[in-house]
Design a protein around this nucleic acid. Structure first.
Lengths: 158, 158
DNA sequence: TTGTTAATAGTCAAAAATAGTCAAACAATC
DNA sequence: GATTGTTTGACTATTTTTGACTATTAACAA
């Protein structure tokens, strides 16, 4: 269900750079409880994945999902570095890498290298410590990319 | 039983380069306990045998088996992985990366990413601990370079 | 203005729906 | 008989679904 609703919203977002819904309407449309919509948004439309969410309660209330717009690769990298902050979970870190791949800022191989480096199996198991180290490593890699020549890319480098 | 399930999955994989199952369904189909499926996967669909496995728990969970191609540079990478062992200094690690770059096994950008990850400024300062973590990370990265998923169209997110 | 009600959305934790781990029991092979 | 491989099930971990309760806002009544 979550996947279906996610797909629906992403489809709309392919045409527009933002979408505004009424929570109860979408819940009805997909025949689920309203809080399911919150779950979808909290897990699939995070800032690490490149989305901003605004909402208002009360009469005429809404939930608005906005695709984050960036100027260019450099802007994207800077934005991501900010988002990462000084601590990041495995999941969020992987979302960031995935996003960079989807936006053609890194190649698939680069993404895979970065993903292994984010994997929890690499770290100590102390969550707080791991998240700080992971953040440091990811930020260092992104900073590095800022000063590298962009990859020459074909339209589709799968 | 293990052989039968293995054969079944491999038959499907002859037609497609990946297969997605629901563990409980397959267990039912072959009338065995679900954890049997894990056994099959752990013994017959390893990375050494050319398979990658991904899974998700919870509602809508799945196990996905993906055929991977082993790349040409296998020997070189295997040798490097052996040399690295379970502990490596910053200097030696950087030499390894440099060598891979000189031998055209990795690109310049990939080399830079890996070098950042080897840098001592990332680590704790406890030499023994750092060298083990560095080795683990470098080996994980190299293992990753050995395999490649078959071409799959990336979603067209224009 | 000021309360009150209706119409929203948000939070949180329990329950349900999955998959993973591990070790004991069992079976096959050497 | 010892070793290695397989099967089983109890227990754990993760993700999703659900619903009761809370918070906010707008509209309206006093």
């Amino acid at each position: 269900m979550t996947d279906i609703i996610e797909a629906y919203l992403k489809k709309v977002l392919q045409q527009q750079d933002q979408v505004e819904i009424r929570r109860s309407e979408i819940a009805q449309l997909f025949d689920c409880v309203p809080s399911q919509i919150n779950y979808v948004i909290n897990t699939r439309f995070t800032i690490q994945k490149g989305y901003l969410v605004e909402s208002k309660r009360g009469g005429g209330g809404y939930i608005r999902i906005i695709k984050v717009q960036v100027l260019d690769d450099l802007d994207m990298l800077n934005t991501m570095i900010e988002i990462i902050g000084d601590s990041i979970s495995e999941k969020d870190a992987k979302s960031v890498v995935q996003k960079l791949y989807e936006d053609d800022i890194i190649t698939k191989r680069e993404a895979k290298l970065m993903l292994v480096a984010m994997d929890k199996s690499l770290y100590t198991g102390e969550r707080a410590i791991d998240n700080r180290l992971r953040s440091k490593l990811l930020r260092m890699m992104l900073v590095n990319l800022k000063y590298e020549e962009p990859n020459k890319r074909k339209a589709d480098h799968t």
